[in-house]
C-alpha cells in the first residue's frame, strides 16, 4: 500500500475573460503582416501541479544497519521551479514499553526533481541504525515515523 501525497497548490487563476482580440489588417499598401501565437501558461495554470508517492511503510529486519527506501516525484510546474522533498525523522523506533532504537535518515534527506516536468521520478533514501543500538535493544516490536515534506523551490 502506498501513500500518495498530492499537493495541489491553490491556483490564483485569472478568469478567462472574453476580451476581443485586437485585429490587424492587410490592404493594397500593406500586403503582409504578423500575428502572435501565444500560450500564457502561468495565467492558465498558476504554479502547476505535483505529487509525491511515498512508501506506505519501511520494514526493517532485526539488525539492519541500513535500509533503503524510495519515493517518486511527478510534477508539471513552472519552468524555473522544482519539486523539493525533505525527509525527517519524526520518531525513533519505539516499542510498547517506550524503549527506543535510534535511527537516522540519510542519503539523502532532500530530493529535488531534475526538471519542472517529471513523471514518477524515483529518489532513494536510507535509514541507518548503529549496530550498538540493536545490541542494546530488548527484543520487541518497534515503530518509528519519518515524514516527507514537499515544496516548490527555485531551479
Amino acid at each position: 500500500m502506498k501513500k500518495v501525497i498530492s499537493v495541489v497548490l491553490a491556483l490564483v487563476m485569472m478568469m478567462a475573460v472574453m476580451v476581443p482580440a485586437f485585429a490587424a489588417t492587410l490592404d493594397v499598401n500593406t500586403q503582409s503582416g504578423n500575428s502572435t501565437v501565444l500560450v500564457d501558461g502561468i495565467t492558465d495554470k498558476g504554479d502547476g501541479t505535483y505529487s509525491v508517492e511515498i512508501p506506505a511503510s519501511v520494514d526493517l529486519i532485526w539488525g539492519d544497519t541500513t535500509k533503503a527506501g524510495e519515493y517518486k516525484i511527478t510534477s508539471q510546474v513552472q519552468t524555473d521551479k522544482r519539486v523539493k522533498v525533505t525527509l525527517a525523522k519524526a520518531k525513533d523506533l519505539t516499542n510498547a514499553a517506550n524503549e527506543t532504537i535510534e535511527f537516522a535518515v540519510a542519503d539523502a534527506t532532500t530530493g529535488i526533481a531534475n526538471s519542472a516536468v517529471v513523471n514518477n521520478e524515483a529518489h532513494t533514501f536510507n535509514l541507518t541504525i548503529d549496530a550498538s543500538e540493536w545490541a542494546a535493544a530488548s527484543i520487541a516490536t518497534y515503530e518509528g515515523t519519518i515524514t516527507f515534506t514537499a515544496e516548490l523551490a527555485d531551479a
Binding site: 504578423n34 502572435t36 501565437v37 498558476g46 513552472q78
Partner: peptide
C-alpha cells in the same frame, strides 16, 4: 513546463 510560449505566423 508551465510557462509562457509564443511563436509568429505571417499573413
Amino acid at each position: 513546463a508551465i510557462d509562457t510560449y509564443s511563436d509568429t505566423l505571417t499573413f
